[in-house]
Amino acid sequence: MIPQNFEYSAPATLQEALQLISGGECKVMAGGMSLIPLMKLRLAAPEHVVDLGRVPGLNSISESGGVVCIGATATHHDIESSPVIRGRVPLLAEAASHIGDVQVRNRGTLGGSIAHADPAADYPASLLALEAKVRLVSANSDRTVEAADFFLDPFTTAVESGEIVLEVLVPIEEPREGYRYEKVPHPASGFAVVGVAARIKKAGGKTTLARIGVTGTGPRAFRALAAEKLLESGADVATAAAAVAEGQETNADLYASAEYRRHLTRVWAARALTLALSRAS
């Protein structure tokens, strides 16, 4: 539980931070909830840690032009308790409230979590269902990628060397839409064995829009496009839920085999969709 020596920088401005990391060989840290345990286990041994925690304004949460902007270092607690997020993108607040425990939610950040890209993290399901975008900046670039193009593989994202996650841009949910994040937490780690985020819009009793993001089930979070289409073309929840994990590679571990995970995905997708439907008006 003793990490290797490392150099530590806590830049006071974004420019300084981007300069520091432009060289490559360093690890960016936000809340440290994933990085520090790995360093203590010596599974990670970065020579240089750049802590974004003191960059002012990087944790701001604001709304403009139909989009909620969440700074990378906003903590899970900030997100679950923010009036803007609770009011405008309540699905994300609901997802944040399921992460880890109180201590982790007080330290851990949105940017840190998505950049780490644990295949069982909670946020990706909601960000996919919300069709969020991630803004990435480096010393000489500034680009925005769709959530769907951000999560590539386990622990692998679209973030390039020298880049950091600056903010996450989430289109606001319409007040009349229904949403739900359901999760089966691992009894030890709290990670999602399966996590399903659902959004539903209804008009005239019909589902006009369905968005389903799934985490934990496969090597990366995914959107259940086939299931969304089924719902939008009038299929019932059970039929759609059965299609959620179809064709997806499925994880297996000591707690849940691939077969059981697929089953859980179906069950919890159905439960999330049912609740989202009941909330939609």
């Binding site: 286990l41 425990d101 691992h186 009894p187 030890a188 780690s189 000591l254 707690y255």
Partner: peptide
């Protein structure tokens, strides 16, 4: 030992 840390070895927590 595959359940070699508290990430896999499920101790009861207060909320459980």
């Amino acid at each position: 030992l595959l359940s070699g840390e508290l990430t896999d070895y499920a101790l009861p927590r207060a909320h459980m």
